[in-house]
Simulated scan of single mutants.
Amino acid sequence: MKLRKNILTTLLLAIGFILHQITPGILGGMKFDFLLIFMIVSLLLNPKFENVIFTGLLAGLLSAMTTSFPGGQLPNIIDKMVACLILFVIIKFFYQFKNNSIVVGVIGGIGTFISGTVFLGSARLMVGLPVPMNVLMRAVVLPTTLINGIGIVFIYGLVRRAIKLSGITSC
């Protein structure tokens, strides 16, 4: 994988990390995962398998460092890796439509839903949940799915425009 693409992925995840860090925890210590938007943008820009593994692992580690969920470190790594692998297949399937805002929003929503569901499921098995899973799904995962589905359309457009203006041609 080229250094330029690794740097772009790292910068995108750093931006997501900062937003994730300053987002306060809500119901049961959960927080909206803005790092996920930038993870998905990275996958849309570079849907190569090496980047999927790199992005999933790095996003998982960054998210694990900032989690406000008690014992949520390992579930964060698991959910980012699983979400990246599933999104890899979805993005490859819809690659010819990657510039369509609706498709990008749907991919963002699907990725967020997968990530949230896997996180809650693995956290439930490993450390338990502070409230029932269906409450967390309705209170955190579904609203975040909607927010990220909309937010990724804007962020992806901004990042693509910034790449175009900067003259980077290999992304």
Rank of each mutant, 00 (worst) to 15 (best):
I18H: 05
L19A: 12
I22V: 15
I22W: 06
T23G: 01
P24E: 11
G25S: 14
I26L: 11
I26S: 13
G29R: 05
M30N: 11
M30G: 09
F32R: 03
F34W: 09
L36A: 12
L36E: 07
F38T: 06
F38D: 07
F38M: 07
V41H: 08
S42L: 04
S42P: 07
S42C: 10
L43W: 05
L43D: 12
L43H: 10
L44P: 06
L45K: 06
K48E: 15
V52S: 15
V52E: 11
I53Y: 02
T55F: 03
T55L: 02
G56F: 01
L57P: 06
L58W: 03
A59S: 14
A59T: 01
G60N: 00
L61S: 12
L61V: 15
L62M: 12
S63A: 06
T66I: 06
T67S: 01
S68I: 02
P70E: 10
G72Y: 01
G72N: 01
Q73R: 06
Q73G: 15
L74K: 04
P75R: 03
I78G: 12
D79I: 01
I86P: 14
L87Y: 10
L87W: 08
F88I: 10
V89H: 06
V89Q: 14
I90N: 11
I90A: 15
I90L: 15
I90S: 06
I91R: 02
K92G: 15
K92W: 06
F93Y: 13
F94N: 03
F97I: 02
F97H: 14
K98Y: 11
K98W: 03
N99K: 13
N100M: 02
N100S: 09
S101R: 10
